[in-house]
Write a protein that binds this DNA or RNA. Structure first.
Length: 560
RNA sequence: CGGGACGUAGUUCAUCGGUAGAACGCUCGGUUCGGGACCGAGAGGUAGUGGGUUCAAUUCCCACCGUCCCGACCA
């Protein structure tokens, strides 16, 4: 490619809106331009990288036995109605209607579509298992796009769907995809951490995110730096014992000055640590309108995801409003740990680690002390509904550390979730009986992966592409091009490299200074820089993007 | 959707009641030519949109639209 003809040039300034390095560099180096918030043009250089990434994904997926295909972008809305996801999806479904007034969903994920195509064949157990996948544009009506390519509203995703006869066979495919993903990201130079995470409606053990550790990432996970890596939503930890052997004292209602309102006031007033107080957090189920009060030890925070699982309302809880509190006869700061009619009480396991809690029935000028779980109040159930935090201990006694990362891929157990909801999503087993498929799905965000690579591989000068995903292998620079013999020589080098099938970006601009060309080369970040000038004689100067030193090589050496 | 910031040339920013200016980039000419050179000339803006206040609005006020950041949300 001749740089002079390349669409998408480098620029000196990034837009002031860009806060992330990957966003700035991809903009400045001419890989992307924004259309509207969260929707990007991927320019020629950017698309070359995306192609390389997709090439690696495709190669490894095929090697693992998966088969590439393509589904329509517009999904018949009736399919989403079949699984009730027109209502329950976490993301706002984008809909569109054709001239016949038929409604479609713009695909944000494609489980229904893949089940639909599979059921058109009504396979037998002999046809199973299989894993089919696609690279397709995904549409998400994100509430907030963010950080260049990091969180967008349209992006290319590789999404794969596996169909097995049962869980046991599914597990093998799950492991297969796990290994495949590790290999894919390794090939791109990305070190991924496999993080246990929440898969929403199913729960269970099969859901993992592949995360590139990075402070600018949106995924928070806890790790013991050895074996245990878990998303904050699911991370388990040992609740430390506060005083569970202490003797239970008599329950008492005590006077309390009116200035005592917040947890901090409590600490000041009673001169006791946070862990000795009861804390109540109120949620509302946005579907059923049910009020849920989570009761927890004062030093811990409620983990909404865990709570949703505890009350079997995945994706349905939201913070209660003042009006909700009024409805159950209370107000902010005065929620009781028991007794509010019309509310369900769920307690955290930590309630058992403290004797003689303070609080729980705060009124205007009184509160309760020496409150004990079991004796003075009980909840509908005690469950793990607390948010794990850094420095908490695992059951193994290891310390947890909180890290952030970019989720570049995930693997997911679907089980029977879709196959049982969708009509005829079955295969015929050995005994001639219909059985639902046991499914899994596996995604990789291509654009986000690209951004993660830039976040990891760059320096002050610009991007440093790993060779496997670089838009070109060589960045050829011609200097002293007014000299006809040098000009013809560098064009000759370019032609011969192309003839040998090498990927070359050739900076053939004649009126640009050397410094400019070098700066552009560093910014674009192609792995090998070649220079032909009056200094290089018969040879070509070679410099790796990652190194400072240069050396002279012959054309044969390069092309061989 | 809540909180905050903002919208002026392709980009970064100035001007802040009196009809818009710089740098970079771009075009042309010349001098340079191995780390973002220099000189000269030039093109490029209905100041997001609409309304209001005013003799006069890019500037003040309101609404809408759009953008970014934090939060909520995120198969």
């Amino acid at each position: 490619m001749l740089y002079s003809k390349l669409f998408g040039k480098t620029v000196k300034n990034a837009p002031s809106d860009a806060t992330l390095t990957s966003h700035k560099l991809l903009y400045q180096a001419g890989f992307i331009r924004e259309s509207t918030a969260g929707r990007y043009f991927i320019l020629p250089l950017g698309q070359l990288v995306q192609s390389k990434i997709m090439g690696i994904v495709r190669y490894e997926m095929n090697k693992a036995g998966a088969q590439e295909m393509l589904s329509p972008v517009l999904h018949p809305l009736v399919l989403w109605e079949e699984t009730n996801r027109t209502k329950t999806t976490g993301f706002e479904l984008m809909k569109i209607r054709d001239r016949r007034e038929i409604w479609f969903a713009l695909g944000g994920t494609a489980e229904e579509m893949f089940v639909d195509v599979v059921r058109k064949f009504r396979p037998s157990y002999k046809d199973l298992p299989f894993n089919i996948y696609q690279f397709a544009m995904k549409f998400r009506d994100e509430l907030r796009a963010r950080g260049g390519l990091l969180r967008v509203r349209e992006f290319i995703m590789k999404d794969a769907y596996s169909f097995d006869v049962d869980e046991e066979n599914f597990k093998k495919e799950y492991k297969n995809m796990w290994n495949t993903y590790s290999q894919i990201f390794k090939k791109m130079g990305l070190n991924t951490i496999v993080v246990e995470s929440d898969n929403g409606y199913i729960g269970g053990e099969y859901c993992h995110e592949f995360v590139v550790e990075s402070d600018i990432g949106e995924t928070s996970f806890l790790t013991d730096r050895e074996k245990y890596n878990a998303h904050v939503d699911v991370a388990l930890f040992e609740r430390d014992d506060i005083n569970s052997t202490e003797e239970e004292k008599p329950f008492k209602i005590v006077e309390q000055p009116e200035w005592v309102k917040t947890m901090d006031d409590n600490i000041k007033h009673y001169q006791l640590p946070k862990s000795r107080f009861l804390k109540n957090v109120v949620y509302k189920n946005r579907i059923t309108k049910e009020i849920i009060i989570a009761v927890i030890r004062g030093d811990l925070d409620v983990n909404k995801t865990k709570l949703e699982h505890a009350v079997n309302a995945v994706g349905q809880l939201e913070d209660a409003t003042e009006q909700d509190l009024t409805k159950i006869g209370t107000k902010r700061g005065h929620v009781h740990s028991w007794g509010h009619k019309g509310a369900r009480y769920i307690g955290d396991l930590s309630l058992k680690t403290v004797k003689n809690f303070i609080g729980g029935q705060k009124e205007k000028s009184t509160d309760t002390i020496n409150v004990n779980y079991g004796r003075d109040f009980t909840c509908e159930k005690l469950a793990d509904i607390a948010l794990a935090k850094e420095t908490y201990l695992l059951e193994t006694g290891k310390k947890l550390v909180e890290k952030k990362g970019i989720e570049v891929g995930n693997i997911f157990q679907l089980g029977y979730h879709y196959s049982k909801k969708m009509k005829d999503a079955t295969f015929i087993d050995k005994n001639g009986k219909e059985k639902p498929f046991y499914m899994g799905c596996y995604g990789i965000g291509i654009g986000r992966t690209l951004a993660a690579i830039v976040e990891k591989f760059h320096d002050e000068q610009g991007i440093i592409w790993p060779e496997s995903v670089a838009p070109y292998k060589y960045h050829l620079i011609g200097l002293d091009l007014k000299d006809q013999s040098i000009k013809s020589k560098v064009h000759q080098v370019y032609k011969e490299l192309l003839a040998k099938g090498r990927e070359v970006l050739f900076d053939d601009r004649e009126d640009i200074t050397a410094g400019n060309k070098f700066a552009d080369a560093d910014l674009i970040g192609i792995p090998y820089r070649l220079v032909v000038s009056k200094r290089t004689g018969d040879k070509i100067e070679l410099k790796k993007r990652t190194e400072k030193s240069t050396r002279l090589v012959s054309l044969d050496e390069l092309a061989s």
